[in-house]
Amino acid sequence: MSDQSCVYIKKEWDIVAARQMGRDIATQVGFKTVDQARIATAISELARNIYLYAGAGKICFEAIETVQKKGITIKATDEGPGISDLAQVMEDGYSTSGGLGAGLPGVKRLMDEFDIISKSGEGTTIESTKWLR
């Protein structure tokens, strides 16, 4: 966990701050425009979820490098109410907020790896990685 930087999500503008930071890091890792937009959009979705459902939380970024590949990992953590039915939120079109319901399944499609851990009443952690092609 060397190259980690975090943005705390408390107000609406923090969503913009988070995706700007994520885009900067993605640029440094070497992602091209389209993937930068994918990553920034995914961050936007995750940050908005924190803001809407948990009220507060943080988003951390990490540039990762293994023997074969480079990439960026986004980790979104909150201590909100948690998600009671994980299968349901991963369905396209499911929304409790009147949005498009494209959020979490959308993030999964925008990124390469996606992991979600959530306990009712304890909060949610989502970790998602995009690899450099």
Binding site: V34, D92, G106, L110
Partner: peptide, 14 residues
Amino acid sequence: IQPAVAVTLIDLGI
């Protein structure tokens, strides 16, 4: 609409 935006929208299923 920029190409990168179009691609992300399609990925999002919008």
